[in-house]
């Protein structure tokens, strides 16, 4: 464990909590892409099946349980409890355009052709593009609530910190996982546009609005 990975995990946890609080406090999931939340739930479910097969540490197990629990709680909020506030008309990204290539690639490029390993690889590739429906929705509505931008900031920051974690682990432990690193790079690059808007607008107290 190193400082980048720990702060990365905490940033990820913060993002997940911020989203849940935003929906709970405002009793609304306006501006939230349900499709991205479905993809994240699929990412956690397919990646954390090893909860049933191996124990790494209390931290590892408890964080996995928290992530999965929050992911499904968010889906419950978006598609059941606060369904009336879900903006389905703007959440129109075709997720099959993500699932098919990612599914195919996880069979072609993986570390080991075993079910758990292919599911892990699938979850890594899927996570790198899972935010696209959310970013697409913001580009369609042309704006995002400030609390939603904080959610996206911490969500993007987490994988950027993981990139430093992998540099650290390569240097100190000789460990590196090319699949996770390449997918993590893609994932972080997809946020660059948002990071620019977040830093130049939201941090200056302005609302995040895109030239529609």
């Amino acid at each position: 464990m190193n400082v980048f990975r720990l702060t990365g995990d905490l940033s990820h946890l913060a993002a997940i909590i911020i989203l849940l609080l935003k929906i709970w406090k405002t009793r609304s999931c306006a501006g939230i892409s349900g499709k991205s939340q479905i993809l994240f739930a699929v990412v956690f479910t397919s990646r954390y099946l090893d909860l049933l097969t191996s124990f790494i540490s209390l931290y590892n197990t408890s964080m996995k349980v928290i992530y999965i629990g929050c992911a499904y709680a968010t889906l419950y909020f978006v598609y059941m409890k606060f369904k009336a506030t879900y903006d389905g008309n703007h959440d129109t990204f075709r997720v099959e355009f993500l699932l098919v290539p990612v599914g195919g690639l996880s069979f072609l490029v993986n570390h080991d052709f075993s079910p758990l390993e292919i599911l892990w690889t699938f979850s890594i590739y899927l996570e790198s593009v899972a935010i696209l429906p959310q970013l697409f929705m913001i580009s369609k509505t042309g704006e995002a609530e400030t609390i939603t931008t904080h959610y996206l900031f911490f969500l993007g920051l987490y994988r950027a910190l993981y990139l430093f974690n992998w540099i650290w682990r390569f240097y100190f432990e000789g460990f590196f996982d090319m699949i996770a690193i390449v997918a993590g790079l893609v994932q972080t690059i997809l946020y660059c546009d948002f990071f620019y808007l977040y830093i130049t607008k939201v941090l200056k107290g302005k609302k995040l609005s895109l030239p529609a």
């Binding site: 990975r5 995990d9 090893d50 191996s54 080991d112 390993e117 974690n165 996982d177």
Partner: peptide, 10 residues
Amino acid sequence: LLVLGEHDEL
């Protein structure tokens, strides 16, 4: 990979 098929990161 620590042990084949085991990933220690979240």
